[in-house]
Nucleic acid binder design. Structure first.
Length: 201
DNA sequence: ACACAGATACTCT
DNA sequence: GAGTATCTGTGTC
């Protein structure tokens, strides 16, 4: 049996959430009630007001980043590069703008549905990047700010005891402008997994 | 196997 | 007007 992660889980320390999400299952229930899911294999932590790479740096609040200031356990989806939506889970307390970016998944349920939204030759390319997985899962900004304790988007873990994944870490991707913070080892992945994003850890 | 440039449109100054 | 938590195709080795 699987259990849905509770709000308490998301209100923990952000790095802890980023590491513990590895191996869990992200689920999107579509308009028609179909389950689309994938195993989380790569994440990045964004540490709020103290993190120059975070949208909430210095508590800067804009219309786009409102969901980031919600309490832990909400979705934060934003649009970037004129083309892509990126999916994050908000962590920590209300008004602390911290989050975990989901960077890569291994597809589990609804692979046909994903292929419709994101036609690719190799199924491996369905969800091995943050922009890719949002396209495959049908995520866009209209789904930002939803509670992850609801029935539309949530994350599950197996009720059975499972083996701890072997976690590797490294610097985050695409934030060279952020000075020192560009080197912080806040990117986490399951070692050597077949569905990691590039560049490789 | 890399490395590079171009696409694209929204968000904030 | 400038910048962006990316991806793809096309080039070279």
């Amino acid at each position: 049996m699987n259990e849905k992660l509770s709000q308490d889980f998301y209100m923990q320390d952000t790095i802890e959430v980023a590491r513990q999400l590895l191996g869990a299952t992200l689920v999107h229930v579509t308009q028609k009630g179909q389950r689309i899911s994938g195993r989380i294999v790569e994440t990045e932590a964004y540490l709020g007001a103290q993190d120059p790479a975070c949208h909430g740096f210095g508590y800067r609040l804009t219309p786009r980043t409102q969901a980031l200031f919600m309490p832990g356990g909400h979705s934060y989806i934003y649009f970037i590069y004129g083309m892509y939506n990126l999916f994050n889970v908000v962590t920590a307390r209300r008004d602390e703008p911290e989050a975990v970016l989901i960077r890569a998944l291994e597809p589990l349920e609804g692979i046909d549905w994903m292929s419709l939204h994101r036609p690719v030759k190799n199924p491996r390319d369905l969800t091995n990047g943050p922009g890719k997985l949002s396209q495959a899962f049908g995520f866009d900004t209209s789904l930002s700010g939803l509670p992850l304790t609801g029935d539309k988007i949530f994350i599950e873990v197996s009720g059975q005891a499972t083996e701890e994944p072997h976690i590797v870490s490294g610097p985050r991707v695409g934030i060279d402008y952020a000075g020192d913070a560009a080197h912080w080892p806040l990117r986490f992945a399951i070692s050597n997994h077949s569905h990691l994003s590039s560049p490789k850890l």
